[in-house]
């Protein structure tokens, strides 16, 4: 506890409570689980126990290593409280489900059962994730490309806007999933129809936001560029589009959200692969451990994709954050 008495810049170690938080939390959760496992009908808890041994081991090693590694210490200071809470939350989940049976089975299995499903079905889950990724990327890319083109045309040319805007306003708000009955008839295969639906879901927000960004380009930027001798191509690609990029990113984010939704629905009705399909398949067999496993994978998958888009935005819009580029 002498950390409190030293000056902050000389503080070369985390305070004790923070060092011990994760090991203690995992011991609590783990201990609770052992109590539950004894009481309930025999549960296979081997992998769940293993997980906690790992967490315990790694957190102790990190606690020992952090005085010698400032970057690690900074990271731990940031992440440890939320990580501790997450572990305790696992314990609460365990108590509510497997321990006290407060939620009906088989719909709400405990964390140990979900982990078991996650491990036993790992090959299928990896395969499903891969298929979802391919479908998502192909549909999203297509939707973004078409959306950018139509958005720039509608935003720049008043005659395209006259004809295009009513179509956009009438057709755009229809949720992409509402087209499923038609898409299944028209498209040559379920995969193509699903990719098309994802593209459609992305196209609308990207077009809308790109068009409004382009048409709201400050007139004085265009005036300046004209007096510098700019032609139409320069005005579109070097003035209007860069000026619209903040707006375009809003469209990209909205489109990404819509594409996740459309992907999961399209996979569960037509396509015979992917996480959406896996989810409805597991539901069909009432294997709710697998349902939760798929949900966990989706959470990781979608949030990773979202994070990547944020990273891209931070790079592209570095000028907007007021950060000097070196």
């Amino acid at each position: 506890m002498n950390a409190d008495t030293t000056a902050p810049d000389k503080l070369s170690t985390l305070p004790w409570p923070m060092q011990l938080a994760v090991p203690v939390a995992s011991l609590i959760t783990f201990g609770t689980h052992l109590l539950i496992a004894q009481k309930a009908p025999p549960l296979e808890t081997h992998s769940y126990m293993l997980l906690f041994w790992e967490i315990l081991g790694v957190s102790i090693v990190l606690a020992i290593a952090q005085p010698f590694w400032p970057a690690l210490r900074k990271w731990m200071r940031h992440i440890w409280p939320i990580f501790t809470a997450a572990i305790l939350l696992l314990g609460v989940w365990d108590v509510i489900t497997a321990g006290l049976h407060l939620l009906p089975l088989p719909y709400f299995p405990g964390p140990a059962a979900v982990l078991r499903s996650l491990i036993s079905d790992r090959a299928l889950l990896v395969d499903s994730t891969w298929h979802s990724l391919v479908l998502l990327l192909s549909g999203y890319t297509l939707g973004v490309i078409v959306g950018l083109i139509s958005g720039v045309c509608i935003g720049w040319s008043s005659s395209v806007r006259y004809w295009g805007m009513p179509l956009l306003k009438v057709v755009g708000p229809i949720p992409a999933t509402a087209w499923i009955p038609l898409a299944m008839v028209v498209a040559p295969s379920a995969i193509v129809s699903a990719a098309g639906l994802v593209a459609l879901a992305v196209w609308f927000p990207v077009t809308m936001l790109t068009a409004s960004g382009i048409s709201n380009t400050r007139a004085s930027y265009l005036d300046v560029a004209r007096t510098l001798g700019a032609g139409r191509l320069y005005l579109i690609f070097r003035v209007a589009i860069p000026a619209a990029v903040p707006n375009i990113f809003i469209g990209l984010f909205m489109g990404l959200g819509a594409s996740f939704l459309t992907l999961v629905v399209a996979e569960s009705v037509g396509v015979k692969s992917g996480l959406g399909w896996y989810l409805s398949w597991a539901q069909g067999w009432a294997e709710y451990g697998k349902v939760f496993a798929a949900l966990i994978i989706m959470a990781g998958f979608f949030s990773t994709v979202m994070t990547l888009l944020f990273k891209l935005r931070d790079r592209v819009l570095v000028w907007q954050k007021g950060v000097i580029k070196w």
């Binding site: 400050r218 007096t227 510098l228």
Partner: peptide, 27 residues
């Protein structure tokens, strides 16, 4: 050339790129 009260620099370009824009606009 025209210079306004508001400098109207392109905020997405660095100072150097803004000055280059005069040349880039004419290709």
């Amino acid at each position: 050339g025209l210079v306004f009260q508001d400098p109207n620099l392109f905020p997405w370009l660095t100072v150097r790129r803004n000055i280059e824009a005069g040349l880039a606009a004419r290709g």
